[in-house]
């Protein structure tokens, strides 16, 4: 029983009177409890939509057109079962209700899910706050009274309070300063490892993914173009997009005098190119890439790459 199994997933949005693919044919999985899978991609690649779908929070103008998402063998799309999937969003300020105290927002989970008394739920909320390194007195604070890092910790506390079977974290630290980001991130990583909760971590930052995740899926134009464990992905990136991405990031640890440039800009849903979706920007594209869409191919003991070079 895998914590997460996604097969042939297609998600579409209804825009301008037609259904448009935003996520196409995604296969992903998490093998064990406490494993972290990073989904890395640029804006518009469909990574957030994928996360929302896993958490069962797709907006009303989106649908899963094909494929399935199973969490511990239970289909998340069927309403009959009560899988608990927590999601941590990007902007912690807007993700918290401004009119309710931190305590009220954490405690309501216990009150409604576990039929706890209000008093007991508040005691639990205090424990959760302590777990994420916040003072227990914060139960009576309002979100606007906290700093960005503190708010993000509250969101993490809330996710943990759900006792979830899976956590989806969508760039939870991008809005924070680097030092706060590092602290919150390490807290989150260590917490899910300790509690054995599987997690999908969505980010645009490959460096971050290398430190937090076990496995990395690189997403481009709605597809997973490369999927591997993080060691082989960094040591031997297969897909030209992954290679280019790795060499286009400025680094703190070494002096880089020239950045690799991927020409053009990523396509948006509705205008994905024919053939391989990366071919207009790919330095290695050949005739086959213009006409035929590559299928995922297994290249190492783990994972796959979606590229004709490995056909």
């Amino acid at each position: 029983m895998k914590p997460l199994e996604i097969k042939g997933l297609i998600i579409q949005y209804y825009v301008n009177n037609q259904w448009v693919d935003v996520v196409s044919n995604v296969d992903l999985d998490i093998d064990e409890r406490g494993e972290i899978l990073a989904v890395v991609g640029e804006s518009g690649c469909g990574k957030t939509t994928l996360g929302l779908a896993v958490a069962g929070l797709l907006p009303s103008n989106a649908k899963i057109a094909r494929g399935y998402i199973k969490v511990f063998d239970k289909d998340v799309t069927s309403t009959s079962n009560s899988i608990k999937i927590a999601m941590i969003f990007q902007d912690a300020l807007t993700s918290l209700n401004p009119l309710l105290t931190v305590g009220e927002q954490i405690a309501e989970i216990d009150i409604h899910h576990f039929k706890m008394s209000k008093k007991k739920a508040f005691e639990e909320a205090k424990k959760r706050l302590a777990e994420v390194g916040l003072p227990t007195t914060f139960v009576s604070k309002y979100p606007h009274e906290l700093s960005g890092g503190q708010r993000q910790r509250v969101l993490i506390a809330m996710a943990i309070a759900m006792n979830p079977e899976l956590i989806v974290a969508d760039e939870p630290t991008t809005a924070l300063d680097v030092t706060t980001q590092a602290r919150v991130l390490i807290l989150l990583r260590d917490l899910v490892k300790k509690l054995g909760i599987p997690m999908i971590y969505i980010t645009h930052d490959l460096a971050l993914a290398s430190q937090i995740a076990d496995k990395i899926a690189v997403m481009y134009a709605g597809q997973i173009v490369e999927y591997s464990n993080k060691y082989s992905l960094f040591k031997e990136p297969k897909h030209p997009y992954t290679q280019a991405l790795l060499s286009s990031i400025p680094r703190v640890d070494v002096d880089v005098s020239e950045l690799h440039i991927i020409k053009g800009e990523p396509p948006t849903p509705g205008s994905f190119p024919r053939g391989c979706r990366f071919h207009p920007r790919c330095p290695l594209a050949f005739s086959k890439c213009f006409v035929e869409e590559p299928i995922p191919r297994k290249v190492s003991s783990y994972g796959y790459v979606r590229c004709h070079l490995y056909g």
């Binding site: 958490a55 929070l57 009560s82 608990k84 999937i85 927590a86 999601m87 969003f89 993700s95 918290l96 209700n97 309501e108 989970i109 409604h112 899910h113 969101l155 809330m158 759900m162």
Partner: peptide, 8 residues
């Protein structure tokens, strides 16, 4: 979205 996520 957060409230929905909490399955309230």
């Amino acid at each position: 979205k957060t409230a929905k996520m909490k399955r309230l």
